[in-house]
C-alpha cells in the first residue's frame, strides 16, 4: 500500500474531516473486537449480572489472568500446536507440489500437457465444500479419520498456487532459459538456481495465502476428526468455554489469542499478503 509522494496531502478542515470519517469507520470495524476484549477480561458471572442494568460496554471485575489460564490450558495449547503443525505440512506441501507442477507446465514438453492443464482448471470447480461428503467417505474407507494425514493430504496440491507460480515462471525472459541451455544447466539446476530464486516474491506471497487458508479452515477439520486431541484451534473454539458458565470469558480470550499469529503476519507482511490476495483480481 504505497503512497504517492507527488500528490499533496489534504490540510486544515479537509484533513480533520477525513480523520473523523476514518476514525468512525475504524470504530465500527473494531467494535465487535472491543466487546470481545471486554468480555474476555470481565469475570463471567459479575459481567452477566451487570448486563441487567448496564450497557455491557465496560469491563466488570477485571481479570487479566484469563489470558494466562488460556495459555496454560492443555486443550488450547494442543489445538494451537496441531493447527501449526497441520498448517506447516500443508504450506510446505503446497509450495513444493505447486512449484514443481508450475515448472512442468512452463518449461517442460510432455504429452497431454493441455489435458493436464484442463484437469487443473477443473479442480477450481471442485472445492472441498462440494466434495466434502464424498471425501469424508473416502478417508473413512482408508482409515484416515482422526489422523494427521487425513487432515493434510487432501490439501497438498493447490491449483491457485500452480497458477500463481506459473505466472511468475512465465515472466522469466525466454533468453534467460536460452542462456542456461547454452551453458548446460539441467532442469533441476535451472529450477533451483534460477527459476525459484527469481520468483521468490511470488512464492512468498503464496506461502502467506496458503498459511492463511490452512490455519483458518474450519469445515474439513470439523468433520475429518472428532477426537478432541485432533481438533484444530478453529474447531476447538466452538467448544472452548462452553462447558461451564463461569468459563464464558475463557472462550473469548482463547478466540482472541488464536488470532494473534495471523495478526502479526498481517502487520509484518501486509504487502506480500495483498499481492497474493489481488493476484486473481489483477489478472481479471
Amino acid at each position: 500500500m504505497g503512497t504517492d509522494r507527488h500528490s499533496e496531502q489534504p490540510r486544515g478542515i479537509k484533513a480533520v474531516g477525513w480523520y473523523s470519517v476514518l476514525i468512525t469507520l475504524s470504530a465500527i470495524i473494531l467494535f465487535p473486537i472491543y466487546t470481545t476484549i471486554v468480555r474476555s477480561i470481565s469475570s463471567a458471572i459479575p459481567y452477566i449480572n451487570s448486563l441487567k442494568d448496564g450497557s455491557g460496554l465496560v469491563p466488570v471485575a477485571v481479570d487479566y489472568g484469563v489470558f494466562g489460564r488460556v495459555l496454560q490450558n492443555d486443550r488450547f495449547v494442543n489445538a494451537m500446536l496441531l493447527s501449526a503443525a497441520i498448517s506447516l505440512i500443508i504450506v510446505t506441501g503446497q509450495v513444493l507440489t505447486s512449484t514443481l507442477a508450475a515448472y512442468a507446465f512452463v518449461f517442460l514438453e510432455f504429452p497431454f500437457k493441455k489435458l493436464a492443464f484442463a484437469v487443473l482448471v477443473g479442480t477450481l470447480l471442485l472445492p472441498i465444500e462440494v466434495t466434502i461428503m464424498a471425501n469424508i467417505e473416502t478417508i473413512r474407507d482408508i482409515a484416515w479419520l482422526n489422523s494427521i494425514q487425513g487432515l493434510t493430504v487432501p490439501f497438498l496440491a493447490s491449483a491457485f498456487g500452480i497458477f500463481l507460480i506459473r505466472q511468475a515462471f512465465l515472466g522469466i525472459p525466454s533468453e534467460l532459459r536460452d542462456a542456461a541451455d547454452l551453458e548446460g544447466y539441467s532442469h533441476l539446476r535451472f529450477l533451483f538456481r534460477v527459476a525459484v530464486p527469481i520468483s521468490k516474491p511470488i512464492i512468498g506471497s503464496f506461502v502467506l495465502i496458503s498459511f492463511l487458508g490452512a490455519w483458518n479452515q474450519y469445515l474439513w477439520p470439523r468433520f475429518a476428526a472428532d477426537k478432541e486431541s485432533l481438533q484444530t484451534i478453529q474447531v476447538a473454539l466452538r467448544n472452548l468455554g462452553k462447558s461451564e458458565i463461569t468459563d464464558l470469558n475463557f472462550g473469548y480470550a482463547a478466540a482472541l489469542l488464536s488470532a494473534v499469529p495471523l495478526l502479526i503476519i498481517l502487520i509484518a507482511f501486509q504487502r506480500q499478503l495483498v499481492r497474493g490476495l489481488t493476484a486473481g483480481a489483477v489478472k481479471g
Binding site: A255, S258, L277
Partner: peptide, 10 residues
Amino acid sequence: SSTVATSVAV
C-alpha cells in the same frame, strides 16, 4: 484489513 486475517470461526 484486519478482518481478512480473522478466521470465520474467530
